[in-house]
Structures are given as C-alpha cells and as structure tokens.
C-alpha cells in the first residue's frame, strides 16, 4: 500500500514566559538589534537621505532680439560695431556699421516650445575692409516651469579670430545651462531676470565686453554655447558682405535640485530611505528569526513551550 502526502501544514509552537525573565531580556535585545541595526547599516553605507536629485526639462527659450557685434576690419585694429542698443550705437560714431539681420525661431516638434534659432547677419564692408575677428553677443530669455518657475535673461558669447580674412562665420551649437547651485524645487525664481547688457545706460563702461562677461559669469545660473567651434570660411569677394550664420538649439536640460524637509520633497526623501531600510531589514528579520527559533527550540533560555495539540486547552 503506497503512502503519499495528502497535505502538510506548519505547526505553531508557542513559548511562554513571564515578564522578568532572561527570555524577556533576550527578546527585547533581539527586537532592538533587528530593527535598529538595518537603520545604522543603511545610514553608514552613505546615501541614505537623498539630498540632491535631477530632473529633465526643455526650457522655454526666446531670443530677446538683442545683438551686440564687434568685428575687426584690419589687422591694425580698426573695427566696425553694431548693436540693437541705440546708446551703444551712438558711442561708436564712425565705426558704426549697420548690418542686415534676419532671425527665425522654430518649433520643430510643435510642442509649443521653441527648438532653435536661425540667425543670419550680413555685414556690409567697403572694398578695402576685411574681417579678421568677430565678437557677437546674443541675449535670451530662459524659462523653466517644472520644479521652480525660473525666469532669467541669459547670454551667448561667440568669438572667433583668425589671421586670415574671412568671408563667413558659421556657428551651430546648443544653448546649455551652467548651474553652480541646485535650483529650488518650487517657488518662483526671478533673481536673474535682469538685463545682461544694460542697454539703457549711455555710458561706455556698460558695453565693455570684459565687464559684461565678468558680471555674467558671477551668476550661479548662466548659459553658454556648446558647439564644436565656429566654421571660418576664407575668401571674400570685394564688395560682398561678411556673413555670420548661427544656429542655436535649445535642448532639454538636466537640472539639479535639492530635497528639503517639510514639503513635497520630504516624501520623496522618505520613499528612497524606506526602500533602503526595508531591503536591509529583510535580511536581519530572517537571521534573527532563525536565532530566536534556535534559542527557544533548544531551550537555551527557559520558557514554557506550548505544543500545537495542547493549544486548544489553554
């Protein structure tokens, strides 16, 4: 007659003791070790409380239609300049040269955020002039919405100089965010929503490129043009304008932001801490349950075991 297992179930053995015994002391110790040690392990292994995180967002960038252009027309140092600031143009006197500018901002994927700027500047030159260097400042309005509502005015500086006179300068690059400090995760941030170039100032010091760049680089948030480098095309026909072409793309940015206590970021911190804590806790729970089973099963500490079949009577 073949015998087979019809059914199996674990039997529960209860161990009883009174309050002031060694078994109670043991139990308290084990409980403390089980639940506090994982906390220490998780904390000591670094990164328990998440303090920085990142998110990705495509900024809403608009070209502010502010241009400042300085171009050297000879190796001796003569130059022509133009900007969209009337005060700067008034300072230039005879060196003012008004170019023909065309600009178009495109929304390629039709998501409502502009994706790139196409800018073309045709600088007319007299036949005896040649272009050896170009300095170009463009300003942008830069907005982020997802975490903190950030609005700022930013700058792109393009400079190229060549010992050989050129006919065309072409730049193609990304407008990237330079972030020195993490952004707040909420609130409105308009600290840098001020003009990068003070176009209302009639004083020449306001248009000194070194001053502008130095003041701009002081900022914790700024933008720069990330590009493989300008393309300088040599060989210009006499009478042809010098042509500056620029394609500036507005890609999505990875933005750092901090977690703070007592706001929505708090629960994000707790969530990641909980994940770490519980994963370590599981190991400790298993180990200490084996330890407890060993201790009580073998009566290392005196307790009163209640076998499964006797439980009904108790």
């Amino acid at each position: 007659m073949a015998v087979y297992e019809v059914h199996a179930h674990p039997a529960l053995v209860r161990y009883k003791t009174s309050v002031c015994t060694r078994a109670t002391l043991f139990l308290v110790t084990v409980l403390c070790l089980t639940y506090i040690s994982p906390l220490l392990v998780a904390y000591r292994s670094q990164g328990f409380w998440l303090k920085r995180s990142t998110y990705e967002e495509q900024p809403s960038v608009r070209f502010r239609y502010q241009i400042l252009l300085v171009a050297a027309t000879s190796t001796g140092g003569s130059y022509v300049a133009w900007s969209t600031f009337p005060n700067f143009n008034a300072l230039q006197g005879g060196n003012l040269r008004i170019p023909s500018v065309s600009a178009r901002e495109e929304d390629l994927n039709r998501d409502g955020k502009l994706d790139r700027l196409n800018l073309q500047i045709d600088l007319p030159l007299t036949p005896d002039e040649q272009i050896y260097s170009v300095q170009l400042l463009l300003t942008f309005s830069y907005q982020l919405y997802r975490m903190s509502a950030l609005t700022m005015q930013t700058l792109v500086y393009v400079q190229h100089a060549s010992p050989v006179a050129g006919s065309r300068l072409f730049v193609d690059g990304d407008l990237r965010l330079q972030q020195r400090v993490p952004l707040a995760h909420r609130g409105v941030d308009t600290a840098y929503n001020v003009s990068v170039i003070d176009g209302s100032s009639p004083f020449a010091a306001a248009y000194d490129l070194a001053n502008i760049i130095a003041a701009y680089q002081e900022r914790n948030l700024s933008t720069f043009l990330s590009s493989p480098g300008p393309v300088w095309t040599v060989g210009r026909a006499a009478g042809a304008p010098f042509r500056i072409g620029a394609v500036i793309r507005y890609p999505a940015e990875t933005i750092r932001y901090p977690y703070r206590e007592r706001d929505p970021g708090f629960w994000e911190t707790i969530k990641f801490a909980w994940v770490q804590y519980v994963s370590v806790l599981l190991i400790f729970l298993w180990v200490f349950s084996r330890v407890q089973t060993f201790v009580f099963q073998n009566q290392v500490l005196p307790t009163v075991p209640v076998p499964p079949q006797k439980q009904h009577q108790l």
């Binding site: 400042l68 300085v70 140092g77 130059y79 300049a81 700067f88 008034a90 300072l91 230039q92 006197g93 060196n95 009639p202 004083f203 020449a204 010091a205 248009y207 000194d208 490129l209």
Partner: peptide
C-alpha cells in the same frame, strides 16, 4: 572719451555726475 567695445576712444561717452573715473 572712453573705450566702448574695443580699446578705441569713443568720444560720445558721457561723464556721470559724482562718479570719479579715469579712462
């Protein structure tokens, strides 16, 4: 006269009242 954009003198630069300046 002060440099504006380049090191060349720009004669149209106004002086500001109470701002000591050497250019």
């Amino acid at each position: 006269p002060a440099p504006a954009g380049t090191a060349h003198c720009s004669d149209a630069n106004p002086a500001a009242f109470l701002e000591d300046r050497t250019t």
